[in-house]
Structure formats: C-alpha cells, structure tokens
C-alpha cells in the first residue's frame, strides 16, 4: 500500500490584494511508497507548503484527491490525521507551557493518555529531556525545532511531513536531525520532506518531486533527475601533459565522448569525472 497518493491536486485562491485568482497548485500528482523518504523540492512560493497544508487539512484543495495509506484526506480527515505527523515550517512560540506540558497536550489531541514513556523517549532522543520544565520562550531556535519534531511524533505516525525542518538550524543540529530522520525511516516510517538543502535531499531521498509555480516538473529518483537534467565534467589528462575539459550530459559515456571529439584513447594518461549534482539539475529545471 502506498503511504501517500497525490492525484491531480489543484488549489486556487483569491488574492484580495491583487484582485485576481491565483493558482497555487496546478494539478500535482505523485506517490510515496511505504517506508520511503520523499523530497518535495522547489523554490520559495512553488506551492510546497500549500500541498502539505492540503494533506494536513489546513487547506482544502480545489480539486483532486489525496490518499494517506488508502484513506481519503477529504472524505475521512479524522482517520488520515491519526496516521500523519507534521512539523510545520514556522516554529511554535507558545508562551504558556513547558516542553513536558506541550507533549502531554499533543498526546491528548491524539487520544493518548499518560504517554510518558513515548514522550520521555522522544525528549531523550532529541536532547530535550533536561529542558523539559522550560517554557518555549526560554528555548533556543534549535530546541524549538526539536520540540516540533517531538510533537509530530508523540502518536507514532505512519507518515511524517517535514516542512523545511532544518531552516535556520546550525550544521551540527542539521546533521543530527537527518540522522534521526534516517532512523525513523529504518523503523518503517514514511517521510515527506521539503528542504532547500539539495545535497542532503540527494543523499537521503528515495524519490523526489520538483515543483515550481504550482506545476510538477519532475517526479522520480534523485539519480534519474541528475542523469536527465545535470551535466558532468570530464577532464582528460593527456600523455603530452595537456588537460582537456568537456562538459556533457550525464547520459554521455566515455566512448561516445572520445568518438565525438575524435580522441585517441592511447593518448590519454588519466580520466577524471566530476559527476553532476542534484543542485545543478534543480537549478536547470526551475530556470527552464
């Protein structure tokens, strides 16, 4: 069974300031397999957050279908909400409650009473336990991010939505968060994430979808995306000491290159290949 099925989702809303209708999502479709980490990538304003808001019912799509483990988000929202955990893009800033109280309330929202074991586990795992009696306003930005992840996980969701979870987070914390996300995947959780750190998306994601201005530009594996949209640099070091550089499509092999430029293989001393990156492919795709 698929963790998430996004079928031809469209979202149109009225921009009261501009006095016109805006198409935030123009028929987006993709699937996430169970146990996958899936990256939803796109520049700012592409429609990523609108799509996540639609999955969590904060927004209602104008048309299309969203299925979470086979259940419709639109027809059975209470059922799908139980299966989804979400880390919103903007950090929480509640001034009243401590970390421990917030996790207790969050458990209660999902019908779980006295969820101490799970909450303690998450607080330990996310290095929040020693701060459990602190109010949110006393926490650093990184701790607030970790608290948001803990909140999203109190009910052990089957699908975790991470909307730019590492925005504004330092390198060390980012690494530890991604490591934790990888652990969640190993436990069988399916994860949809949005991020601007494409290098990390390339390393972590089993599948990616690229959206720009509400349109789906690509849906596949990071490897396919790199192959289709980025270029590699081939550096040939000749026996006579000369260095030749060629920038070619990732699909072009060495043999083709040598034929194309009429190079005798016997004259080559060494070959270096700089593979294309997801970042290059992404830049090329969104600028098309």
């Amino acid at each position: 069974m698929k963790a998430l099925e996004v079928k031809d989702i469209k979202k149109t809303y009225a921009d009261k300031v501009a006095g016109k209708k805006v198409e935030a999502l123009k028929g987006i479709s993709f699937d996430i397999e169970k146990g996958q980490i899936f990256g939803l990538l796109g520049p700012n304003g592409a429609g990523k957050t609108t799509l996540i808001a639609s999955i969590t019912t904060l927004e209602k799509p104008t048309s299309g279908e969203l299925l979470v483990f086979g259940d419709s988000v639109i027809e059975s929202p209470l059922k799908t909400k139980m299966k989804v955990g979400v880390v919103h893009q903007e950090v929480i800033n509640t001034g009243f409650f401590t970390i421990e109280e917030i996790l207790d309330f969050q458990s209660g929202y999902y019908g779980i009473h006295r969820n101490h074991e799970r909450c303690d586990y998450l607080m330990h795992k996310l290095s929040l336990y020693e701060h459990r009696n602190k109010k949110v306003k006393q926490l650093s930005g990184g701790m607030k991010r970790r608290l948001m992840i803990a909140k999203a996980l109190v009910h052990t969701p089957k699908l975790l939505l991470l909307d730019e979870p590492t925005a504004g987070v330092d390198v060390g914390l980012r690494e530890s968060l991604w490591k934790f996300v990888q652990e969640l995947k190993n436990e069988g959780m399916s994860i949809l994430l949005t991020t601007h750190y494409l290098e990390e998306a390339e390393q972590m994601c089993d599948g990616v979808a690229i959206i720009n201005k509400g349109q789906l530009l690509f849906n596949g594996t990071p490897k396919d995306m790199i192959a289709d949209y980025s270029q590699k640099k081939l550096i040939l070091i000749m026996k006579n000491g000369e260095t030749k550089e060629y920038i070619e499509s990732n699909k072009v092999g060495i043999g083709e290159l040598l034929t194309k430029y009429d190079i005798d293989i016997a004259e080559i001393q060494d070959i270096k290949i700089e593979e294309g990156r997801l970042e290059d492919a992404f830049s090329k795709m969104v600028s098309l």
Partner: peptide
C-alpha cells in the same frame, strides 16, 4: 488569538479533533 500567534492552533487543526 494567542494560538494564532504561537502556532498552537495549527496543532489542534491537524490533529483528529472534531
């Protein structure tokens, strides 16, 4: 209003609460 400021309302809205 404080929930709108802090983001708590989003947590309540995305939870399975009628």
């Amino acid at each position: 209003v404080t929930s709108k400021f802090s983001g708590d309302l989003e947590d309540i809205r995305v939870a399975p609460i009628p």
